[in-house]
Design a binder for these strands. Structure first.
Lengths: 227, 227
DNA sequence: CGGCTACTTGATGATGCTCAAGCGGAGTGG
DNA sequence: CCACTCCGCTTGAGCATCATCAAGTAGCCG
């Protein structure tokens, strides 16, 4: 096992930890690798380990009823997940899937807790992380409560759009995620995403170009989103 | 100032703190009292203080657009709020209103942070609290994403119902909150709450009795909620 | 070229939001 | 003690919207 590749140096949560302590922490993890779409963690898993992503990214999903799925978060290199189950929540309720080839360090619950008590700065940083998560979710709850499905699709598209690098006042989404991904974020079904984009295209607010969406009239789109 | 009334002894977050330290913490708070419906904390407030409720309860709300409001949480005696702004989030985004006569201890951001570093057990307990909040919000996001407005009203009513203390297989909600409160939780408008309850009454699933709702067929109601 | 997946588009029916009108109980002032 | 009023609840009609179903198209990979 190549130790140099198995370092927690890039993990933001641990950036206040001295290098020598970090190495000890690294050695107390189970290192694992996952392929795209592989399930990293499933519901009702009882391990309660905490996972640090040193390379790749994952998506956290929740299932309601039997068929419909909701995307709760996407977590990237340098971040962590599983801390909720480790800290307190009685059981895992979400499923975590690798979005690409991903390397994670799994730390046992007990070891994680003892680390928090040993390094208060880490606790503080974790608190900051969780506070940020809660703020984001507050926003999301408020948005979901107040906006109509169609509007949520507009908002999601606006969230993804970046100014067109080729000058012009346009904004672009590139590459456009698959419709079912957008649907899982916005809490609508797949057809609604297509209908929403179709309507915007008909009204010339945006244009479809292969895998990218070019938004011509961002202001109007924003207005249509009702916020 | 009556010191005996101004004690943080009942605050759960601080239950691992030794009594003498607790007294010092108590003395470093600004103690304040609010009447029903008084605004404890408003958006864009820059104080970043942390508040401990020693008596009473408050509601945390968020406003979207200009008119519609969403209830994010209700916080009771022994709990705390404002920790998100103190720990990290750049600004306050929610409004906090007293639900009854309420006494709070306000602790400055800096003092709070230093306390966390001094008492790692408190950090750990706070982490647990936040983890619990996140889990709850995950559920709420998932529910909001997947269920229709009508169903959310049913679910909210089911959440409030308790078994009828007078025997019988019935469940009761007593007192029934005002419709606009239910609406703010479920993310629907006021009439939809009335329509939903009306429909349930017509189908004899429940019965309206003054300020209380008697649920006869909880199973059917649960089924209608689609979960 | 065939087969698959994702996207597009439309029709339909159910549903929820808006508007509107009436009702009932609690509190107020005479 | 009685009107009066306000606020919250109830109910309904009309209309826009969204989920469902369905069919056809585009693009991709073997």
């Amino acid at each position: 096992m190549n130790i140099s590749k198995h370092s927690l140096a890039k993990v933001k949560l641990l950036s206040d930890v001295a290098p020598e302590s970090l190495e000890e922490l690294s050695n107390n993890c189970r290192w694992r690798e996952f392929k795209t779409d592989e399930v990293v963690l499933d519901r009702n898993n009882v391990s309660r380990e905490v996972y640090f992503i040193t390379d790749g990214s994952v998506r956290v999903m929740n299932f309601i009823g039997k068929d419909r799925e909701v995307t709760l978060a996407e977590i990237k290199k340098g971040a962590h997940f599983g801390e909720l189950a480790a800290i307190g929540s009685p059981e895992r309720t979400a499923r975590v899937v690798a979005l690409e080839k991903t390397i994670v360090a799994a730390m046992s619950r007990d070891y994680f807790i003892s680390m928090l008590l040993k390094f208060p700065e880490v606790s503080l940083r974790l608190l900051r992380d969780l506070a940020y998560v809660i703020s984001s979710m507050n926003e999301r709850v408020a948005t979901l409560s107040v906006t109509a499905p169609r509007q949520r699709v507009y908002l999601e598209l606006l969230r993804l759009a970046v100014p067109d690098p080729r000058g012009r006042g346009d904004w672009v989404i590139e590459p456009l995620p698959k419709h079912d991904e957008l649907a899982a974020w916005a809490g609508v079904d797949v057809e609604e995403v297509a209908h929403a984009i179709g309507k915007l295209a008909r009204e010339k607010v945006l244009e479809r170009q292969n895998r990218t969406l070019v938004i011509h009239d961002r202001a109007k789109m924003h207005e249509m989103s009702g916020m």
